[in-house]
Amino acid sequence: MTTLTTPPADVVGRSGPRAVPRNRIPRTRLVDVELRKLVDTRASRWLLAAVPLLTLVVAAGVTIWGSDAETAFAALATTNLMPLELLLPLVAVLTVAGEWSQRSALTTFALVPRRGRVVGAQAVALVLVTLAAAAAVVVLSAVGTVVAAQVRGIDAVWDLGTGLTLRSVLAYLAAVAVEFVAAVAIRSTAPAMVACLGFLFVVPMISTVAAGMWSWWAEHGAWFDLSWSLAFLTAPQITGTQWTQVGTSALLWLALPLALGLRRLLRVEIR
């Protein structure tokens, strides 16, 4: 340790950050960093920018060409919320799986070796962004309803029920969660992206065909098929049984793969 008496070199400012206390990195800071990662690449920035842009385009289009009924708040908001189901899962995949495909995981997990903390922060960041996007869409839709009513000289119709709105948001959260789980389990952008599109388009198709050919599935499929049971959430009414079906299918599509994927992610060698 004799060399410690050597005067500090200018290359690394010894007086600075070394004085920073060695506390565990707080969770809020990890979430802040993960939120930043959601918007700091061109691809995810465009996907997120598309949310308000699409809302404005739809609102303008409905105002100009739509029927009076279509300018009602519920109709407008429901239409505008739909793109979220595609856009936000893509953001989730790009950010979470991109970490592995782009190999920035090497730096991320060198800075935060407790991998579960990073994954947890990613999940929280995605929930926050989904909620913020949904809120932005609802607010913009409200503005659209007011403007359309003014332009058309009709009374604005405020018919959006709180229950349905909350259930819709829950459905979008679930869609984001499916892709988050796919990204955690697959850890590669392209295959996770395929899984994303597969869940949104292929699974419902297969399920519908199966229901047509197999009456048992037509009756009980919703217990297992999350894409099916999620449709209950966005319907005007939902029964207790349907809630349970959402729960069981979520266990199958979310909890189980997440547990397996997480188990692997926490142990895998990061190259």
Binding site: N23, T41, E99, Q102, S104, L106, A110, R271
Partner: peptide, 24 residues
């Protein structure tokens, strides 16, 4: 290493310079 509370303040690591997110 995993027990360091904030490893970046104690240990500087560069294992592969090409392992950085190309989009940032």
């Amino acid at each position: 290493y995993a027990d360091l509370p904030n490893p970046g303040l104690d240990v500087g690591v560069l294992l592969d310079a090409s392992a950085q997110h190309g989009g940032r």
